[in-house]
Design a protein around this nucleic acid. Structure first.
Lengths: 237, 237
DNA sequence: GGTACGGTTAATACGTTGTTAATAATGCGT
DNA sequence: ACGCATTATTAACAACGTATTAACCGTACC
């Protein structure tokens, strides 16, 4: 993960802007994958996300906008830095973008130098990635979660159970943040899009169900951190 | 540690600019300590740094410049976010400022809204959870504090204990000001946002608990400075 | 129109946290 | 050495957060 050879995902529909920006970024030493629209970006995200060190997302895109892309990215990778490229005027958008993660934004028009500096800061900040792809996100102790099929298999007994979409999403999110604290608010924002009292109760119900589903492996434990959130304890390996 | 009551150190020599900026920042809800020159800033840094949640440093200052101040700040606190206020032209300065830490900059002239957004991002990043993992595991003698996980490990025995949020915040604050005197009032302001008799008693209870948690390493000592505050004695290394 | 399903709300029991209180110990000035 | 203020420690408590089960309700599909 050498800083100067970092690989960027750059989503921008303005052809002439993207051309010059990309050129300069590459000249500076970055490897750049450019997507001219939301759909090609979705492809890159779902199949290639692990390649990237940083994502640059234009907000205003035809079809799928930058925030939606950001959500998809976050669903797959909690930590990869996202830099939004916003128009000067969009104050609410900026806020929204900043709030959903630890992400940053830069207003257009920006100088490429400024962009590069911002990227460098982000890469530096992320240079030590917290326990990421060292583990197989699908393997949970004795269990295996197949996200696409929404299936949870208990390997020793060869039993399988089909999860609902929400159950699968929640378990996946927990799995990706195993052995860390995941805040209630973040879970709610990511899965439900908002955070109110009743959704909090809903979340508790789902947690309760997942605990029941996972109880054959005693080392697995969805631990509550009072007033903060949950920590999904999964043994290493 | 409440975001909207965050305490800012604001170093800026331009009188009229600082007046209006300070006013707006306070109106927004921040508490602002303004230093009009490098020397008063040095005072604040050496005696009062623990009070602050974020530092805004003008680069161009008479006497001691912003980068020197930043170095002094970093010598005392590895983590506190520093935001440099730079003139439009200074490209090298920006670079220098950004490189020395995980810090950020904003170019003058800036809108106060933009400044506030940038501060908010920083504060969020520095709150307990999404803290920069780079420094995260803090060594306290035989113990290790993982702030993100609110875990305190005793390395020799491999025992771990999960701290409450307050416990973790307090231990973190003590840890950041190890071997210095930390005033009661500062602790109370930072963790509780206000300072009254009863919160003082609460603090004593927490101190008492932390002492118990740390008693396996006799070199660690939360020492009381009568009538002043506490000094967390941690052996070097 | 019934029924199966997923998700939300409700009801209720339970656990944890931070604060307060009670009490003992310590420090400090006179 | 005495008295007052500050701090230490432990226990008790109320407020709030969480767990679990069951009831509810809309929707989709026969």
């Amino acid at each position: 993960m050498n800083t100067t050879s970092a690989h960027l995902l750059y989503v921008e529909d303005d052809e002439s802007l993207s051309f010059v920006t990309r050129d300069q970024l590459e000249h500076y030493g970055f490897t750049v994958t450019h997507c001219p629209d939301g759909h090609s970006a979705e492809d890159a995200i779902s199949n290639q996300l692990a390649r990237f060190d940083c994502c640059l997302l234009d907000i205003m895109l035809p079809g799928v906008d930058g925030f939606e892309l950001a959500q998809q990215i976050r669903a797959k990778d909690e930590h990869i830095p996202i830099l939004f490229l916003t128009a000067k005027s969009m104050k609410e958008d900026r806020l929204k973008g900043l709030r959903t993660g630890g992400d940053d934004y830069i207003t257009k028009p920006f100088s490429v130098e400024e962009l590069i500096l911002r990227i460098e800061v982000f890469l530096k900040r992320n240079r030590i990635r917290p326990a990421t792809p060292a583990f197989d996100p699908q393997l949970l102790g004795q269990y295996q979660l197949k996200l696409e099929e929404q299936m949870l298999h208990h390997l020793p007994s060869e039993e399988g159970r089909r999860l609902t979409q929400r159950e699968a999403e929640l378990l996946h999110l927990l799995s990706q943040n195993r052995n860390q604290i995941l805040e209630r608010g973040i879970i709610l924002e990511r899965l439900w899009g908002k955070n109110d009292y009743f959704l909090g109760r809903s979340l508790d119900v789902f947690i309760s169900r997942l605990r029941k589903y996972l109880q054959k492996d005693e080392r697995l434990n969805i631990e509550n951190i009072h007033g903060v959130g949950f920590s999904f304890q999964v043994p290493e390996g």
